[in-house]
Design a binder for these strands. Structure first.
Lengths: 215, 215
DNA sequence: TAGATTGTTAATCGATTAACAATC
DNA sequence: TAGATTGTTAATCGATTAACAATC
């Protein structure tokens, strides 16, 4: 029921939920029946209280003394994230990263179904990558509208990204997952997630610096 | 000078610095001489005060009324992040994502030089991907030690990741950039960054939900 | 000089953590 | 029952934002 309320979910919570989900699915695959927050927190090295709070936000209910039912919990989180219904998505940029993402069979478990790829390179157009044909970028707007696709993935070079985002919006796409190293701006009816790879690298090299400083 | 002090840099700041750097490099390429924090903040849609604070932490100095010199600023941030000296790295998992990362010529601009790839698949071992030969995983520990490689990238399946991390640590690797969908634990002399792709996806689908709820 | 921009200190906000009551 | 675990309220912590002084 929490899922339907309008109060915004903290972004850190949203970011943690897929991790819980991954762990819980593994437990489910192993036939595990119930799980406690301390068990979850051990796997992901965070505070049990935090896990409890996150699960509460997702609308999960546990039993004191027992814990949470693994099955129920998986379904609750999936439903909360909207990943029980798979959404179609377009991908633009059939380079190496785009090809890698097209090869992810797991996306469906995370609510995503990449139905088509687009590119401007004539050498790539018409080729088939992981069972999906690469289409010319010109067709994106029309196809997105007709197929009611609302999610776009950008794996093109940085310079092309803003133009692609514009086309996507024209086609009615409301959510963009951007892998190009530019910060695209969201808007009133457009949500953007910039997958900033180099941010992680900065944290990593800083950690390395601290390890070395300590020795 | 700030760079050498031991006070820890907030992680959000670290994550933003590469974005500033990217923007500043573009300005530099365009021949731009000076820049103000409000100019930077406009591009990245955040608060000018925050940019100023971040830059101060990185040790940058500006001039009131003028702003910051683009060249100096680029160099200051690069030095602060340690990206003025490129570090060698090993990559394990020569699948599609690994191949994509091996094809990134830009890594060097972010302080990273992937010198070798490893895999366990005999079909992949011996092949050359983007000028680097794929080596058998067994050779990793020895080679890491002899070549003094301290950074590892994991692009292998989730099940293999923990074992790979162990081997890396044995080889003296101190920093792991993990793309497998498992949470690897860092330690006293090991820093880990888990590139959790699905976290972004959760934020994205939540945003989509809110856009739809608004209509 | 006047005004724009930096640099810094204080106030606010939100997330994490701690404490504890509820309950099976 | 006793004890473990949830659920919730309060305290802490840290990051962001606002205010303002310093300065070219």
């Amino acid at each position: 029921m929490n899922a339907d309320e309008r109060r915004p979910v903290p972004e850190p919570t949203l970011r943690r939920l897929p991790n819980y989900l991954h762990f819980l699915r593994m437990l489910r695959a192993r036939g595990r029946d119930v799980v406690s927050t301390s068990h979850i927190s051990q796997d992901l090295c965070c505070d049990p209280t935090q896990v409890r709070k996150d699960l509460a936000l997702a609308g999960a209910l546990g039993k004191p003394r027992v814990g949470y039912h693994v099955n129920e919990l998986v379904e609750t989180i999936e439903r909360f994230l909207g990943w029980d219904n798979v959404s179609d998505a377009f991908l633009v940029g059939a380079g190496s990263l785009g090809t890698a993402l097209l090869g992810y069979p797991r996306f469906r478990e995370y609510g995503l179904n990449v139905v088509a790829a687009f590119d401007t390179d004539p050498a790539k157009i018409g080729r088939t990558i992981h069972d999906r044909e690469v289409l010319p970028l010109e067709r994106l707007v029309d196809l997105a509208q007709r197929m009611h696709v609302h999610i776009g993935i950008i794996t093109a070079p940085a310079v092309a990204a803003p133009e692609i985002a514009k086309l996507m919006q024209e086609g009615g796409i409301q959510a963009i997952w951007n892998f190009a190293p530019v910060t695209l701006q969201g808007g009133d009816d457009l949500v953007v997630q910039n997958q900033q790879m180099y941010s992680s690298l900065a944290v990593l090299t800083d950690g390395l610096k601290r390890i070395r400083g300590r020795v």
